[in-house]
């Protein structure tokens, strides 16, 4: 009895050691596009992916999107779950490939929400003029690009329109900043805001949405061009197949997602267009400020 137990232990050890030695782990970058605080849930998902890939999958977390993008560029990540805004940024040479797009409420789309404290009097973005505003990440579509775009179309920019802005680098914390009234308003990912309404209502329920953006492509999962094609293929089929089997559906339910789907990169053209428009508007604003500094400063 004891002998068999030892034998089994030895076998399992040799398998473990063999795997660790022969197979380098798959490095999977995560960003604030998902709620990262549920560590045990993410650990279980990592284990699920490892089993499906027959290789250990390791999540790599960084504070900002920029850091994750830098790691991708440096080839130190195989996969990553990033935001649509960094994805549409021009890259030369291209080092990313679209892997999968989450399907949320039946569509691969989400919105940016402009939120304010629930008991505040603010009804429109204009009410927030001269107030404090919280952004999520400087490279977030919903948490920065969209409000920046809104202001740019009004001929102004955040540092002029708001009295003070700050970055929380996390959609969930933007919600918290608005709920605590550290900020009078904030821009967040609709998916995260709704996710928090269910999981952390004590924070999210203290905020109110005053503006909903048009639909944008949901923050996508990408692969590095340096990742071997076989692994990319396998990861893609694993992700896309999650909705087909019970365990995968459990994880999708944990994310409040329907599935991971295969969509063309054109899904993110809307973000690209908005980024372009914003950049142009800001350039124009900068030149206008140079011409008439006093006029813009009055705004």
């Amino acid at each position: 009895m004891l002998r068999t137990a030892i034998a089994v232990l030895l076998v399992s050890l040799s398998i473990g050691v063999g795997r660790a030695e022969t197979q380098t782990p798959i490095r999977f970058g995560l960003t604030a596009v998902i709620v990262q605080e549920h560590l045990r849930f993410l650990d279980r998902w990592a284990l699920y992916l490892s089993n499906k890939m027959d290789r250990p999958v390791k999540f790599v977390r960084r504070k900002s999107y920029r850091e994750v993008m830098d790691l991708l560029e440096a080839g130190r990540l195989d996969f990553a779950w990033i935001c649509g805004f960094p994805f549409v940024q021009p890259r030369d040479p291209e080092f990313l490939e679209l892997l999968a797009v989450p399907v949320y409420k039946g569509k691969p789309l989400y919105n940016s929400y402009i939120i304010v404290p629930k008991d505040s009097p603010y009804r429109t973005l204009d009410d927030l003029k001269g107030k404090v505003f919280a952004f999520s990440d400087p490279e977030s579509n919903s948490g920065f690009l969209y409000p920046q775009f809104l202001l740019a179309t009004r001929g102004t920019k955040p540092q002029n329109f708001f009295r003070q802005t700050f970055f929380t680098y996390n959609h969930a914390e933007t919600v918290e900043a608005v709920a605590d009234q550290v900020a009078d308003g904030g821009a967040v990912d609709s998916y995260i805001w709704e996710y928090l309404q269910i999981l952390r209502p004590e924070i999210a329920a203290r905020t109110r949405v005053i503006k909903i953006s048009p639909a944008f492509g949901f923050p996508p999962l990408v692969s590095s061009k340096r990742t071997e094609a076989k692994a990319v293929e396998r990861m893609k089929s694993v992700l896309l197949g999650m909705s087909e089997e019970p365990e995968g559906r459990q994880f999708l339910a944990g994310f409040k997602l329907d599935a991971f789907g295969d969509f063309p990169p054109e899904l993110f053209d809307g973000i690209g267009q908005m980024a372009n428009d914003t950049r142009k508007a800001l350039l124009w604003l900068a030149s206008a400020e140079k011409r008439v500094p006093s006029e813009t400063s009055r705004k």
Binding site: V132, R163, Q164, F166, Q181, A183, D184
Partner: peptide
């Protein structure tokens, strides 16, 4: 720069 009662004591005022 930061206050535990941000509503009563807004940022940067």
């Amino acid at each position: 720069l930061a206050h535990l009662q941000p509503k009563q004591h807004p940022l940067r005022l």
